[in-house]
């Protein structure tokens, strides 16, 4: 049999789909916002994802890397990402302009259990780039506002200039149906009107919550988890209602390359969203 012109019977999960950068701009000094559209219209519309899932983005010649989808499935067609410049792929992405082509495949991972979260109170705590996946849930909750009870957001950044989606969050603060508190570790501008301090200092500002029917979500830099989870536990939120997304090295996103393995868990399939209960019961998780 001739190897080259063989008809393949199964679809190739590694094959990226061409997508066009519709809009891109800086969110902070080293984080850029990307809005992309899968070129094939049918595929663009059938790209069905849930908040907390991620996609593999590739640039020909530079490589491929996983990124959380930060748009909401309630606004189909366009996919949004916030990406920090750290290495090969991300540098290549930063060089790209509107209308340039990238590769995308996904969505992958388990995502947040939005079905279970329905008719519950939602408490979201984010820091830094953790905004990427949690913005998706937040927008999803707001777009389907009647399906959720109280929605609260605590958002921390190092400095005002490093607060991702700063304007968007300031606008959200005005909404009556959302409790939103913002904080920066330090204010080097002298114009910051919100709280100063790490994100955990925002907890006392929260209106009283009903722990047994609250889902608490956290995502941010690794150091943040320990302290935020401590606060959740103090509030008596059940361990399996505390949700977090974890980062691991990922090369395939589809449970094949092994890089994201923790014990027998594949972060790309069984994660990246885990409950605090999972974390206690698995070595190595955080």
């Amino acid at each position: 049999m001739n190897g080259e012109n063989k008809q393949l019977t199964i679809s190739n999960p590694f094959l990226p789909e061409p997508a066009r950068i519709v809009r891109t701009y800086y969110l902070t000094e080293d984080v850029k916002f990307f809005q992309v559209r899968v070129v094939d219209m049918d595929k663009a519309l059938s790209f069905k994802y849930c908040p907390g899932q991620f996609a593999m983005i590739s640039v020909v010649g530079a490589g491929e890397a996983p990124f959380s989808i930060s748009s909401t499935p309630s606004r189909p067609g366009l996919l949004e990402f916030c990406i920090r410049k750290v290495g090969g792929v991300t540098n290549a992405l930063f060089r790209m302009k509107e209308n340039d082509l990238i590769g995308i495949r996904g969505p992958y991972g388990n995502g947040f259990p939005v079905e279970r979260m329905r008719d519950k109170d939602i408490l979201i705590v984010v820091g830094g780039l953790g905004t990427a996946p949690l913005r998706s849930v937040l927008l999803y909750c707001l777009d389907n506002r009647d399906q959720f009870r109280r929605v609260s957001l605590l958002h921390g950044a190092k400095r005002p200039s490093e607060m991702i989606f700063r304007e968007e969050f300031f606008a959200l603060k005005e909404r009556e149906d959302l409790e939103c508190h913002l904080a920066v570790d330090g204010d080097d501008t002298g114009t910051w009107t919100e709280n100063i301090g790490v994100v955990t200092t925002l907890f006392p500002k929260l209106k009283e919550i009903d722990p047994s029917s609250t889902y608490a979500l956290v995502c941010g830099p690794p150091v943040m988890y320990k302290f935020v989870i401590k606060e959740f536990v103090k509030l008596n939120i059940p361990k399996d209602q505390i949700l977090m997304t974890l980062e691991r090295r990922m090369k395939c996103g589809v449970g094949k390359c092994g890089h994201c393995a923790i014990d027998y868990i594949y972060t790309c399939l069984d994660g990246p969203v885990f409950t605090y209960w999972d974390v206690i019961h698995m070595r190595e998780l955080i």
């Binding site: 010649g61 530079a62 290495g87 090969g88 540098n91 290549a92 060089r95």
Partner: peptide
Amino acid sequence: LNRILRGNPPE
């Protein structure tokens, strides 16, 4: 060399 020429770090 090709990766460097295109601005990508070598692998």
